[in-house]
Amino acid sequence: MTRIDFYILPDTTLEARLSFACRLAETIHGKGYRLHLHCADRSMAEQLDSMLWTFRPDAYLPHALLESDMAESVPVTLSWTALPTPTQATALLNLHSEIPEGVNDYARVAEIINQHQEVLITKRACWQRYKQLGHEVVSHQLKS
């Protein structure tokens, strides 16, 4: 079964959630995984695409929107539609409110929870669903 890591932030804002997503993406990529960031919608994907260029002045994380011509040549992709077919060493960072179809095919899955009420409710349901499906679910409580 796929291991699911939940990162629980003390913040309430979408900006904090996406900022942490950038740092986590860098860490996951640094561990040798290909990575797909599954966003809630086009707006979030475009915002995150922009943030990945600027989240740290000394960082470079090669990425592209899954719908672009560059998607095949970069290790990190973003989209809000169906998941791409993963290779054996592909991780998924799910920023969508629901668990996407095909999540079982990924080596690892990460979920980010902040203290926004809507996120708490939807991710609590995801947690329960992952457990029902028999996945190993691990939480990481982050400090401010």
Rank of each mutant, 00 (worst) to 15 (best):
Y7L: 02
T81E: 14
W53K: 10
L83F: 04
L52N: 05
L52Q: 06
P57K: 14
D58T: 12
P57I: 12
A71I: 07
G30M: 10
E26G: 15
F55M: 08
A40V: 05
R23G: 12
L18I: 04
A40M: 12
H38K: 12
E46K: 11
L9C: 01
P84A: 10
V76Y: 01
Y7I: 02
T85Y: 09
E26L: 15
A40T: 11
I8M: 04
Q47T: 14
D11A: 11
L83H: 02
E67R: 12
A89G: 07
L78C: 08
K31L: 15
T27M: 15
L61K: 05
L78E: 06
S43R: 13
E67Q: 15
S50L: 13
W80K: 02
M51N: 10
M70F: 12
S19K: 13
P10E: 09
E46M: 10
Q47L: 10
P62D: 07
E72I: 12
I8Q: 01
A82Y: 09
A16W: 00
I28S: 06
T54R: 14
M70P: 00
P75G: 11
L83S: 03
F55Y: 13
L14S: 06
E15H: 06
R23M: 12
A25E: 07
G32D: 11
E15F: 01
E46S: 07
W53D: 07
L37M: 11
T77E: 06
L65Y: 03
L78H: 05
T87D: 15
D49S: 13
L83R: 01
L78K: 06
L14R: 10
H38E: 11
D49R: 06
R17A: 03
T13N: 06
L65T: 02
T81D: 13
M44G: 03
M44T: 10
M70V: 01
R17Y: 04
D11C: 01
E67N: 11
I8H: 01
L61N: 02
E72D: 15
T27L: 15
L66I: 06
I4Q: 00
D41N: 15
A89Q: 14
T12S: 11
I8R: 03
D69V: 10
H63E: 00
A64L: 03
G30F: 09
P62M: 07
Q88N: 13
M51P: 00
D5M: 02
V76D: 01
G30A: 13
L78Y: 05
H36R: 04
P86V: 08
H29R: 15
P10C: 03
M70T: 08
H63T: 00
I8N: 04
P86R: 09
S50W: 11
R17Q: 11
T13F: 04
L24C: 13
T13A: 08
E46A: 05
D49Y: 08
I8E: 03
A89Y: 08
D11V: 00
D58E: 14
L66W: 08
L14K: 11
P75L: 10
D58A: 12
L52C: 07
W80C: 01
H29N: 15
A16M: 02
R23V: 13
D11G: 05
M70R: 15
L83V: 02
T13G: 00
R56A: 15
S79G: 15
H36M: 05
A71L: 08
P57M: 13
R56N: 14
Y7W: 06
A59D: 05
L48Q: 03
A21I: 06
A89K: 13
R42A: 14
C39T: 02
M51H: 13
